[in-house]
Amino acid sequence: MSKIRERQFNHDGELPPGTPDTQHWVVYTRKKEGNPFKWAGSLNAPDLELAIQFAGEHYGLDEACIAVLVHHADDRTDGPCGLEPLEPGTADGDDGSDWTVLVLPRRGGNLQEAGTIKAPDAETAIARGTRAHANGKIVQVCVVPTDRTVVITGDHDTLIWRLHDMTYKFARGYSKDVRAKWTRIRDEETYEDYRKEDIHSHF
């Protein structure tokens, strides 16, 4: 191991003064063309430029990804989270500016992009968003002013997903080898029993 990692440090006394947390940003990723943006996670960054940079290098590389959407956490207004699927309600109208509508399909689920609506303020945007998207399958509507969201598309100049072989960082990069190696030791049935415990859907 490198020398620093081997070293036993003699730390004395108090820590130097701390630094307050930087801004809170929320990140959504689009896996392939035509798919909605889905919640990927959050991060801390002092400004938008770094937020975008960090979002791409973390969440943009967790799974195949063609675009990343970032917004400041304070820019999102969350509607009430229902116990039952939301009723559409009666809000209508098309005045105001653009709001990006995000919906929660179920409690504990992941927010995903549902579309854009016009509204003069957040409350109206949630009501109109609910009217437009409550289809008996969602429990919450959240809105962000569209001009407060930033979308980065992975292309030649703003690469997100890499061009080189990334199978080394995914279970699927090992599954075939593992099966081949196991079945030299165990019969198929015993191997399958053992594999059952794995998180199937993710392999």
């Binding site: 991060l43 801390n44 770094l50 960090f54 973390h58 080189h164 072989d165």
Partner: peptide, 19 residues
């Protein structure tokens, strides 16, 4: 120095090794 850049820098060293 900070978790977010730790992750980004590691992604780039993986790029270097991959290259």
């Amino acid at each position: 120095p900070l978790l977010e850049e730790d992750i980004a820098a590691s992604a780039m060293s993986q790029d270097d090794l991959s290259h």
